[in-house]
Amino acid sequence: MAVSQVYQSDTRTMAKVKALLERVDITLDEHLDYTCAVFDEEGEPIATGSAFGPTLRCFAVDPAHQGEGLLNEVITHLMEDRLTKGYFHLFVYTKPGSAKFFKDLGFCEIAEVPGFLVFLENRRNGFAGFLKQLAAKKQPGQAAAIVMNANPFTLGHRYLIETAARENDVVHLFMLSENAGPIPAKVRHRLVREGVADLPNVICHETGEYLISSATFPGYFLKSEEKILRTQARLDTALFVQIAKTLDVTARYVGHEPHSLVTALYNDVLSEALPAQGIQCRIIPRKHLPDGRVISASAVRQAVHDGRLEEAADMLPETTLNFFRSPEAAPIIAAIRREKDVVHY
């Protein structure tokens, strides 16, 4: 039986795929860029799978057709598709009960949230190798860690980093590697590096595909339910703990989050789970401007969106501000202005 692509525009077939997923208690993810299915003689889908970037998602095999190796066909098809699109390092999220099927197909477990979710990749030493590379950057002394998207880098980020740098010998700064907005990761990283260049005890790292990029935490970029978010936050925490142990990190600094539901939830999970692993979770209050406005990257994006960059100038370090004033930023500013919603919820 052949596997074929199901186009999002083919609403009739998509509805059948959705029904098939629902029969095995899975909701179709809203954010998919490829879906495929196997059909029976009557043209009804009996197995399906989808992908979004480097992640494979939403698998189901009709209970009447289980044991026929259909999942293998679906996965083969999806892997071929992903490879042609340049994704070689693939990830799967699945229920613990289904993890064994993926392990038989060459996927290896990275982390588990018991009872909820297993996170796998198609490399045997992927995460272990990532940790090994990190270990080479270990520094003596009391170490803290910060994870940030810095979209873009503001004085608020700077304040959080300065606080950590003052209270610790070393600060490991993880910048999310995902390209998930109008500001490309390369630019975000450059602005962070330039913005902390004068702080000698801050070491910048890229998170690769492991820390809250869409690989580990789709809910951060996609609006989904609290339970999913919590599960994903717990998974992320499990990954962070491994990283922290590799670098002998004893504290994680996070910014207090009054406005973003996702980040607030995330902080909540962190402050619950990290102390249990011997890692302090320090939630630092937001920095305010003299006029009472809270510094935030989403406020900056909103200002850029509305064409009022100069109004947000006092939220930005010189390095970020210079970049946005430079001609190089023009296409990025144009991309931000095209966005409908620049403040994530």
Binding site: G69, N72, E73, I75, T76, M79, E80, L83, F88, G106
Partner: peptide, 19 residues
């Protein structure tokens, strides 16, 4: 560059080579 051949179906194998 990375390349793949084969499938995950029974009696086959999937080979991935990378630099």
């Amino acid at each position: 560059k990375p390349a793949v051949a084969g499938t995950l179906e029974s009696s086959d194998l999937m080979v991935t080579v990378e630099p």
